[in-house]
Design a protein around this nucleic acid. Structure first.
Length: 136
DNA sequence: GCCAACGTTGGC
DNA sequence: GCCAACGTTGGC
């Protein structure tokens, strides 16, 4: 099985890692950007995503797994956007901060660095592995 | 809290 | 279909 890797951003004030853990499997809703939506549509069951806290913390804090592939976002009246269901898998031993990511020359291509406003982005396996290493 | 970057909307 | 105006995101 071929797993793909992603990064999901959330403002911890709106939806935090702790919320995700408490909730178990839950919708990743509220995406209102087409590029991000297209990424959601690409996600397959069992794909893994980093959970990133934006704004206040600016760190990757945990890993979630896609447990249900995309379907229409019930919070979207226009019917244009979608959600996936994700579930918390594990917390990183050490959060990996945006600063650390920016300092790593191998991680300069990810959208977190290049396109700060995108909230759902793909990661290469190599990038995923580097970040995993940084968190240990 | 400010503001740059950028995506979206809507008038033309 | 262009582009100005506007709204939002997120780093600083």
């Amino acid at each position: 099985m071929n797993i793909n890797y992603w990064l999901l951003k959330s403002e911890p004030d709106a939806w935090s890692w702790d919320n995700q853990v408490k909730e178990g499997a839950s919708m990743w809703d509220g995406v209102r950007n087409y590029q991000a939506r297209n990424n959601l549509k690409e996600m397959k069951k069992n794909d893994l995503c980093f959970f990133y806290h934006s704004v206040t913390e600016r760190s990757i804090v945990g890993i979630v797994k896609v447990v249900k592939e995309y379907y229409p976002d019930p919070t979207d009246k226009t019917g244009r956007f979608v959600v996936v269901d994700v579930k918390a898998i594990k917390k990183l031993k050490k959060p990996v901060s945006l600063d650390q990511i920016k300092e790593n020359s191998k991680l300069q291509d990810i959208a977190l660095v290049k396109q700060s406003r995108l909230s759902v982005m793909p990661l290469k396996k190599t990038e995923w592995n580097i970040i995993i290493k940084m968190s240990n």
